[in-house]
């Protein structure tokens, strides 16, 4: 089982234990074999320093953790060098944080960043929880066909999600907040289980809320295996 969405570090907006120890403990408690993770220092303070912390922790995790890189467009164009440097170090998954860093998804620096990520063979993960986010993200990444996982999307955006997944083959969806097994099954049957990715936002959020709907959904073993790690593994290996 691969968790495509975890974090470690300090979380400023509420009290939460996101220590590396808490992350590893949570993953082991829930039998998660591997997890993609990044340091929150890279979100809130210094993306390069955060990427250093991410690589350091992943390097001593005995394969449990895989690094997710991040950059902040407000430091454009320096971010382009950071993407190349980390790609050369083996970072394949990347996450951007417009919702936490107060920059616009349609701003010009994003063009260069997306191009650099595409050239680096990256997979992008991005929060798309608000109405309109899936559409904006799909439109912005479509020209490059950059594999992009929409994080935090709920069933309340079902109509938008169906339209986006139908038109944008490079878009995938994290299952965490879909909540209803029937929604998971409907998406898997209509678009393929290889468009769905298991993520938990652990240890910031409860793992079982993300996991129980998947475990009980009437999926085939193959479908469940894809969602619970096969899809994200293939993307990272193939990129």
């Amino acid at each position: 089982m691969v968790d495509a969405h975890t974090l470690f570090g300090f979380w400023p907006s509420r009290r939460a234990d996101l220590s590396a120890e808490a992350l590893v403990r949570t993953l082991r408690q829930h039998g998660i074999d591997r997890a993609l993770t990044l340091s929150t220092h890279g979100i809130f303070a210094d993306y390069a320093g955060g990427n250093d912390e991410t690589l350091e922790l992943c390097g001593r995790s005995n394969g449990l953790l895989e690094p997710v890189g991040t950059v902040d467009p407000r430091r454009y164009p320096h971010v382009l060098r950071e993407i190349k440097t980390r790609a050369d170090q083996g970072v394949r998954a990347w996450r951007l944080f417009p919702e936490l860093q107060d920059w616009a998804w349609d701003s010009r620096p994003v063009d260069g960043i997306l191009r650099a990520l595409k050239d680096a063979g990256a997979v992008l993960l991005l929060d798309a929880s608000r109405p309109g986010d899936p559409t904006r993200v799909a439109a912005r990444t479509s020209e490059l066909a950059l594999p992009t996982v929409l994080l935090g999307v709920s069933g309340r955006l079902m109509g938008e999600l169906l339209a986006v997944l139908n038109e944008a083959r490079h878009i995938l969806v994290e299952t965490r907040r879909l909540a209803d097994p029937e929604v998971v099954v409907a998406l898997a049957r209509q678009f393929g289980a290889d468009r769905l990715v298991f993520g938990t936002a652990s240890p910031l959020q409860y793992v079982s809320s993300a996991r129980l709907p998947l475990e009980t959904a009437p999926l085939s073993d193959e479908e469940r295996a894809l969602i619970l790690g096969g899809t994200i593994s293939r993307l990272l290996e193939g990129s």
Partner: peptide, 16 residues
């Protein structure tokens, strides 16, 4: 339910 699903909320209780 049906805006959410019992399993989603029961997951919170399970892990708490």
């Amino acid at each position: 339910f049906p805006r959410l699903h019992p399993l989603y909320v029961l997951g919170m209780v399970k892990d708490a």
